[in-house]
């Protein structure tokens, strides 16, 4: 609990704030947040995708990389410091790597579509969107496996369980003692 991980998390959040400020200061683009569909009321259109990313594409990419880093750091924070072994950090690092690969594939597939105007399909969606739908969903599965499979090793070991049971027992004794002390009054 005393590690420097919180400083890493803080640094990532500061960087994210910096990226948001930089994006806010970028030259405005008319359709950056969508435009009304020309024919169908109530529907929004995206318009020129390349124009929307012209000034902020790299910043947005960095934003998501930082966010994925933040997610893995936060999950690591949730593991008691005593259990943050080298092995766990390798697993966490690999999870981050997997999520970054998915993000890179999604982003670069979208860029490729913007340049070529053509796309293949995978399970019902254009490739870039398929990376988003299936890839992002699957991206955090390693974290879930670390939690579920590694539960007794990293999250809540038998030793932790015994310690918590002792805490509960101590609390119970303290609660039983309290009325007795109150009944005997000040000496």
């Amino acid at each position: 609990m005393q590690s420097k991980l919180i400083y890493v998390i803080f640094a990532i959040v500061v960087l994210i704030a910096g990226v948001l400020i930089a994006i806010s200061l970028a030259p405005p683009v008319a359709n950056s947040g969508g435009i009304p569909h020309p024919d169908i009321p109530g529907m929004q259109a995206g318009g020129d995708g390349a124009a929307r990313l012209e000034y902020i594409g790299n910043l947005a990419f960095a934003f998501q990389c930082l966010l994925l880093g933040l997610i893995v750091c936060l999950c690591s924070l949730g593991v008691s410091e005593r259990r943050r072994s080298r092995e766990l950090m390798i697993y966490m690092g690999s999870s981050l790597g997997f999520m970054l690969i998915v993000w890179w594939q999604m982003y670069s597939s979208h860029q490729a579509f913007l340049e070529s105007g053509t796309t293949a399909y995978f399970m019902g969606f254009p490739i870039a969107t398929a990376w988003q739908v299936y890839g992002t969903w699957l991206g955090a599965i390693p974290l879930i496996l670390i939690y579920s499979i590694g539960f007794r090793k990293y999250i809540y070991t038998s030793e932790d369980e015994e310690k918590f049971d002792r805490l509960l027992a101590e609390r119970k004794v303290a609660e039983q003692d309290q009325p007795r002390k109150q009944a005997s009054g000040p000496q």
């Binding site: 947040g33 969508g34 929004q44 259109a45 995206g46 995708g49 929307r52 902020i56 934003f63 988003q132």
Partner: peptide, 16 residues
């Protein structure tokens, strides 16, 4: 109809 709408960042754009 509008390629951006079905691409990963949709009509609302990448930051939204």
């Amino acid at each position: 109809d509008d390629s951006e709408a079905i691409m990963p960042f949709g009509a609302a754009g990448i930051m939204a």
